[in-house]
């Protein structure tokens, strides 16, 4: 087995004095879609921010493509091949759609290919091409998410970090965004680390999954196995067997507690 593209070992990250990530270890194999599930405040976004370098881990090590990321400046991380689609999309609202996409190529030196790449991405999203000259703040939530993905892909990353791509989107748009995620993975072979609250879609899209609770990994494995796990079923997929529940007077406790 080859080395995973990204490994976190025993990473601890703090917000001030509050420990948000409590010793997380995970491995992201090259070419895979890996998802981190967890409820609000479980520390999912913090893990992504720690990988991106905008937050510093107090303990533990992060290795990307066999290189340690310790001490690398946040602005240099994208140059190594890690691109981040942030939570809430964070598009540049007063810049045009095209300028937003162009910003994704900020560190690329191959000027001539950048134009071609922008055209290719606009071809994939006709609605963005239609609005290429408008300020991005005028786009709808789903379009902004597409834009944020295009922008992140402009750096031609090896690893794409996606933070809650479904946030605030309708179920239909959410499915569409996940379709895009799968396509990016298949077409470009981009490895994707996906943080998501919509467990059902995330598990059906990803190959591997981690379940995070209050800053700790409590469960991991191939998504097919996770989907069969009784606890995941009840607490993340909302599938519970009503018949059995009728007999029980207590609320089921999670196995890992």
């Amino acid at each position: 087995m080859t080395q995973p593209l990204l490994t976190l070992s025993n990473v601890e990250t703090y917000y001030g004095r509050i420990m948000a990530v409590r010793g997380v270890s995970l491995a992201v194999p090259e070419g895979a879609i890996v998802t981190i599930l967890g409820s609000n405040g479980a520390g999912k976004s913090t893990i992504l921010k720690t990988i991106s370098g905008v937050m510093r881990p107090r303990k533990g090590a992060i290795t990307f493509a066999d290189k340690p990321l310790a001490g690398v400046e946040a602005a240099d991380i994208v140059g190594l091949g890690i691109s981040h689609v942030p939570e809430g999309r964070e598009i540049f609202p007063f810049m045009t759609v095209r300028e937003n996409i162009l910003m994704g190529a900020y560190l690329r030196a191959d000027r001539t290919h950048i134009e071609q790449d922008i055209e290719d991405w606009l071809d994939r999203f006709p609605i963005l091409r239609e609005r290429a000259g408008l300020p991005a703040g005028l786009l709808s939530g789903g379009q902004q998410q597409m834009l944020a993905i295009c922008r992140a892909m402009m750096s031609r990353p090896k690893l794409l970090l996606m933070d809650e791509p479904s946030l605030g989107l309708s179920p239909m748009l959410t499915r569409q965004i996940f379709e895009i995620i799968r396509e990016i993975n298949e077409r470009f072979g981009t490895t994707i680390l996906l943080v998501e609250q919509n467990a059902k879609l995330a598990l059906s899209t990803a190959h591997l999954g981690y379940v995070l609770e209050v800053g700790r990994i409590v469960l991991e494995g191939p998504t097919t196995e996770l989907m069969d796990n009784a606890d995941v079923k009840e607490f993340y997929l909302g599938l519970s067997n009503e018949g059995v529940r009728g007999e029980r007077r207590w609320k089921r406790k999670k196995m890992w507690h």
Binding site: S52, V54, A75, E90, F92, M95, E99, G104, L107, A152
Partner: peptide, 20 residues
Amino acid sequence: LAMQAVSQSQLAATYMGVRT
């Protein structure tokens, strides 16, 4: 463009590789 980007979202600009 980078200056505009920083003024609109410092976080996203950092993710693009801009040294704020």
